[in-house]
Amino acid sequence: MSDIFTRYGDGSPTRMSKEDIRFDLEEGTRDAADRGKIPALTEAELDRLFEICTMPEKAVTVERGDEVVVSFDAGTLKLPVRAGIPMDRSTAILTHERAFCSDTMELGHVDYSYKQLKAIIHEECQAMEHIQLNTIIPVFYGAMPNLGLYTKPDGPIDNWSELLPLAKIAEAKAAQEEAVEHAVKDMVYVASRMYESGADGINFDTVGASGDADVLATLQAAQILKEKYPDIAIEFGMAGEFVLGMHGELYYDGTRLAGLYPHQQVKMAEKAGANIFGAVINTNSSMTFAWNIARAVTFVKACTEAANIPVHVNVGMGVGAIPVTNTPPVDAVSRADKALVEIGKADGL
């Protein structure tokens, strides 16, 4: 009998039998275990996950005492830009501090890539200095490595996505290696200026969006920043659960970056000096919430067990079992949070 209300990964509502939910939980954890070569969830953990998925309440919460820290990507893009509320960025941050009671916040520019920020760095520094005078919560400065912006016509380098289909493999690899050098320089420059202006931390958001070269550039930038400013706080927010091998032969400290999953990515971030790691597990919009959350929790549990630094699981739309929709339903979001914290042992979201 189909008696449990739940959803698909695209957010659309459905009803499932208890047996089908349990089956999808087992399939989800098996999929993560197979792909990541990590342990599947135990029977006890699957039982707990089943309870969370089938709770009748619309919204659920973690148990008292299990609360975690919340950090943000695209922080000041949410209220003034996406929601279209006519407020400046400092007001958005104070709204998060005073009304939403966020634990941290992030200042970011609408052109959210480190390369683009060089030209307006003075205005960004000025904004951070003003914001720091008025805020109590820690404020990150954040943007994306976005290696793709270094390709023609936006940048000086040939586009490896055009070279690869032409079988120009060596040229595509060389182009990515050149882009890494540019990106490192820009990330170090912008992050240095923002830290010196009072930023409490630097957020590298969507690391790996352009593949393994994107990851390498961020690791190198973080390492340089940490040597330059030993007290700087650095957060890595990944772009996906799996590092795409757009280059395929890039290494960091002897480890090949292509193909790394979250429990391996976090070790690279640690070596580079990151203080917080933002694990990403992609949501499959065609599969059920049960399948997606079992899969996400399996990856997160392996990641938190491997990590020596706090893991903040990315739980925006389309990641961390959150449905792929701009208005993620509260029932799915709150269940994902509870499961990721209580079973996955996440240190934050």
Binding site: V69, H96, C101, D103, T104, A233, I276, D347
Partner: peptide, 24 residues
Amino acid sequence: THEMAAGMGGIRTAGDLVARMQMT
């Protein structure tokens, strides 16, 4: 939703303080 489901509560409680220790 995240703050209600799992967050520490920011400056209503001690969320900002715990965050600072994770960050630094």
